[in-house]
């Protein structure tokens, strides 16, 4: 599943960069993200809870920042498994920051996610819709939090 979108934050690229590479900020903006813990300066571990109607799952994921070009670009690889059961998640995501006028920044994201195992059997069409709305909620929470800072 591929996701692409962008949003604008009324803050300088440097401030947006600081927030978007801070696992604490990411966790507080992403609904369902819990127990985030830094493993190294470029990697962390988290739980992500997803729910589609009666189907509930928590993925334990590890995120590794593989490329960084401060304050313009980050690439990260996310890998995870769901509890004791048989679903695997893998994602490669890229974030590109673009300075609009020094005081506002466009954040574009581009992510390729694959889910295999039991959840893969469930309609991926709906999963994608869910993930897209998660992306929008994240963007909104992030914008509000960074602009308030």
């Amino acid at each position: 599943m591929k996701f692409e979108d962008s949003f604008v934050v009324a803050a300088s690229p440097a401030n947006v960069w600081r927030a978007i590479t801070d696992p604490g900020v990411i966790a507080s903006c992403l609904p369902g993200c819990e127990d985030i813990e830094a493993l190294s300066p470029t990697s962390y571990r988290a739980g992500i809870r997803v729910e589609v109607g009666p189907i509930k799952a928590t993925f334990r994921v590890e995120v590794e920042l593989t490329d960084q070009d401060m304050p313009n670009f980050v690439r990260c690889i996310t890998k995870g498994e769901e509890g004791t059961r048989a679903s695997m998640l893998q994602a490669t995501s890229e974030l590109t920051l673009r300075d609009i006028d020094g005081a506002s920044t466009e954040v574009a994201y581009d992510s390729d996610v694959s889910v295999t195992g039991r959840l893969g059997k469930f309609g991926l069409g709906v999963m994608k819709k869910k993930a897209e709305s998660l992306g929008c909620t994240f963007a909104e929470n992030f914008r509000v939090q960074v602009e308030a800072a």
């Binding site: 009666p54 189907i55 509930k56 039991r118 469930f122």
Partner: peptide
Amino acid sequence: TLVAMMNAGLV
């Protein structure tokens, strides 16, 4: 629906 989901390990 429910038993089909249980069979698939979804719930």
